[in-house]
Amino acid sequence: MATGGRRGAAAAPLLVAVAALLLGAAGHLYPGEVCPGMDIRNNLTRLHELENCSVIEGHLQILLMFKTRPEDFRDLSFPKLIMITDYLLLFRVYGLESLKDLFPNLTVIRGSRLFFNYALVIFEMVHLKELGLYNLMNITRGSVRIEKNNELCYLATIDWSRILDSVEDNYIVLNKDDNEECGDICPGTAKGKTNCPATVINGQFVERCWTHSHCQKVCPTICKSHGCTAEGLCCHSECLGNCSQPDDPTKCVACRNFYLDGRCVETCPPPYYHFQDWRCVNFSFCQDLHHKCKNSRRQGCHQYVIHNNKCIPECPSGYTMNSSNLLCTPCLGPCPKVCHLLEGEKTIDSVTSAQELRGCTVINGSLIINIRGGNNLAAELEANLGLIEEISGYLKIRRSYALVSLSFFRKLRLIRGETLEIGNYSFYALDNQNLRQLWDWSKHNLTITQGKLFFHYNPKLCLSEIHKMEEVSGTKGRQERNDIALKTNGDQASCENELLKFSYIRTSFDKI
């Protein structure tokens, strides 16, 4: 039985969820670079991206490699990797027998973001014989899940209580170790020597080791999670996991709180800001991140802002960003909400898709409305799209047979046209069989910064309504002859009103 693990408890099935942008060198404390989270699957090609990484700022997932063999891993080693800020997950990587050479110096898994409450997941690794993470000293947050690894031993010899604050939620089941077939031998045991430290858990006094050649490092209890030197002297209180010299914040392997210019500090002093819960960055760093993602459509890219001495992905609820200094300031009234469309555009074809934009005031991208039916549609669209004030790209209304009016965009005031449909149009209306009105132009103002209007096959939309939009939106004169079809717009509506004058002759039985 794995020490510190839980057996036999019912657990939810383990679901495996399925960018080499360097964020800056980590400095003297770390020998390499800070790398983003990685999802490495199918083959070993991307694994080489770990070569210079000291910190993975995010998670590391290595999974679904069915053609790899043990010899493929023999020359692979990433000794610079010290810390993973989120979680480490391995799933069905064939041929991998140990992690001792792959990650010989991995010391800390912070667990800032977890995989279903777990910071370390080893699942269905069919050839893994031992973990071998002999320098792993601290899992700051989260638990361990090690399950269905039929060859995995050296679990009962690990004292997880020396690595985690609590072992109650560890789930370590259905491994070879369960069948008591392992016969784990710690260093020196074969020669009758006791080389590794022994600890007591559940009444068992057991030597602690990761492999037959690597003991588990056990520091004096007084050192807590700070770690200790090879001689057993406690590291500085700002260290986490390990250090090369005692009581020196510049000799830590990793930091308990924050890293700044080669030393570990309790908090980031001005003019620095907390970033990702582990390091200090200056304003320029946060500003660069903001600008890199301002026009990016890459998933996970955030326009970072500053709030409460932190550089964070977005302002919290009730705050909006001051564009001059990136500071989050309290909103006066309802907060603006910028919604970034991942692929640059979004099609609204149902109430469900409209709900995804609920509360958005600025759309960074283009909207395509293609709704053919739905219950209580006008009210639903207004509830979900009615706060949109600005669209950076274009607005396209296409084959939306259920629409009679666009009044559900009740606050839309600006279409920038930074991206144009077919390279020309910022407003595009095609084949809307029941569209009769755009907006009530006596109450609604709309500016279209650039781009043209396109109207074709809107049989109940009168040309007068379209011409009014040209005047109000500032697009009059931009359109070419064929942009607004004269014969297919309003051709099934009563669009022309003329005053009919009647004269009559009164007659009676005795007068003409």
Rank of each mutant, 00 (worst) to 15 (best):
Arg74Tyr: 13
Leu136Ser: 01
Ile146Pro: 00
Gly227Asn: 03
Glu71Asn: 11
Pro36Tyr: 14
Thr221Arg: 10
Leu47Met: 06
Gly95Pro: 01
Leu44Ile: 11
Asn138Ile: 14
Ala198Met: 05
His291Val: 14
Asn257Val: 01
Val34Gly: 06
Glu130His: 12
Asn117Val: 09
Gly58Trp: 00
Ile312Ser: 10
Asn43Glu: 10
Val200Met: 12
Phe123Ala: 05
Ser77Gly: 08
Pro336Ile: 15
Lys67Val: 10
Cys182Trp: 04
Trp160Gly: 01
Phe258Gln: 13
Lys100Gly: 09
Asn52Ala: 09
Ser225Leu: 08
Phe103Gln: 01
Tyr87Leu: 00
Gly188His: 12
Arg298Phe: 05
Asp165Ala: 06
Ile306Trp: 06
His307Trp: 14
Ser77His: 02
Leu106Pro: 00
Asn175Thr: 13
Val173His: 15
Tyr171Ser: 04
Ser323Gly: 14
Leu155Cys: 12
Val305Glu: 03
Ala198Glu: 15
Phe103Met: 04
Thr229Asn: 15
Arg141Lys: 10
Val265Met: 07
Tyr304Asn: 10
Ile82Arg: 12
Arg297Asp: 11
Cys252Pro: 00
Phe66Ile: 15
Leu155Asp: 07
Lys224Pro: 08
His48Arg: 02
Asp288Ala: 11
Phe205Leu: 12
Asn242Glu: 09
Asn43Phe: 07
Cys196Trp: 01
His28Trp: 07
Gly203Asp: 10
Cys215Trp: 08
Ser161Val: 09
Tyr134Asp: 11
Tyr94Leu: 15
Asn42Phe: 11
Asp75Thr: 08
Leu50Glu: 01
Glu181Asn: 10
Trp210Ser: 07
Gly227Leu: 05
Tyr118Ile: 01
Gly318Gln: 10
Pro271Ala: 12
Lys176Val: 08
Ser166Pro: 12
Thr157Ala: 08
Lys100His: 15
Pro270Tyr: 10
Asn170Asp: 08
Ser98Asp: 01
Phe78Val: 04
Thr194Cys: 02
Asp159Cys: 07
Ile163Gln: 03
Ser296Arg: 05
Asn105Phe: 03
Ser225Gly: 07
Cys264Tyr: 00
Glu71Pro: 13
Ile163Asp: 01
Leu50Ile: 06
Thr250Tyr: 06
Pro104Trp: 00
Leu164Val: 15
Gly58Arg: 00
Cys234Arg: 01
Tyr319Ser: 06
Ile84Leu: 03
Ile172His: 04
Gly262Leu: 03
His236Trp: 01
Asp75Gly: 01
Gln299Arg: 12
Ile82Leu: 07
Pro104Arg: 01
Asn175Gln: 06
Ile201Phe: 11
Ile158Arg: 08
Gly241His: 05
Pro70Glu: 02
Ser244Trp: 10
Thr320Gly: 06
Leu260Pro: 00
Lys67His: 01
Tyr134Asn: 05
Pro187Ile: 09
Pro79Leu: 03
Phe285Lys: 01
His274Ser: 05
Glu57Lys: 03
Ala119His: 00
Tyr171Met: 07
Asn242Ile: 06
Cys243Tyr: 00
Cys234Ser: 04
Ser296Asp: 15
Ile201Pro: 15
Pro313Tyr: 03
Ala119Lys: 00
Glu180Pro: 13
Cys243Asn: 00
Trp210Thr: 05
Pro269Ile: 08
Val173Ser: 07
Gln303Ile: 11
Val265Asn: 02
Cys228Thr: 03
Ser324Glu: 08
Glu180Arg: 11
Asp39Glu: 15
Arg145His: 07
Gly203Trp: 05
His274Ala: 11
Ile62Ala: 01
Asn202Gly: 14
His290Cys: 15
Arg145Val: 14
Gln299Gly: 06
Asp261Phe: 05
His307Ile: 12
Thr157Gln: 13
Cys335Asn: 08
Ser317Glu: 12
Asp75Met: 09
Arg256Thr: 11
Ile146Asn: 01
Ser225Trp: 15
Pro187Ser: 06
Pro36His: 03
Tyr30Ser: 05
Gly232Met: 02
Gly142Lys: 01
Leu47Ser: 04
Trp160Phe: 14
Pro220Thr: 13
Thr157Arg: 13
Leu136Pro: 00
Asn257His: 07
Asp86Thr: 02
Leu128Glu: 01
Asn322Ala: 13
Cys301Asn: 02
Leu99Ile: 12
Cys335Leu: 06
Ile163His: 01
Asn202Asp: 09
Cys255His: 00
Phe283Ser: 05
Phe258Gly: 03
Tyr272Trp: 10
Asp75Lys: 04
Leu164Cys: 06
Ile139Gln: 01
Lys100Phe: 11
Ile201Met: 12
Leu174Asn: 09
Asn150Gln: 12
Pro269Glu: 07
Phe285Arg: 02
Tyr273Pro: 02
Gly183Asn: 05
Asp165Lys: 15
Ile84Ala: 00
Leu332Phe: 15
Trp210Lys: 10
Asn42Leu: 08
Cys239Thr: 00
Gly333Phe: 06
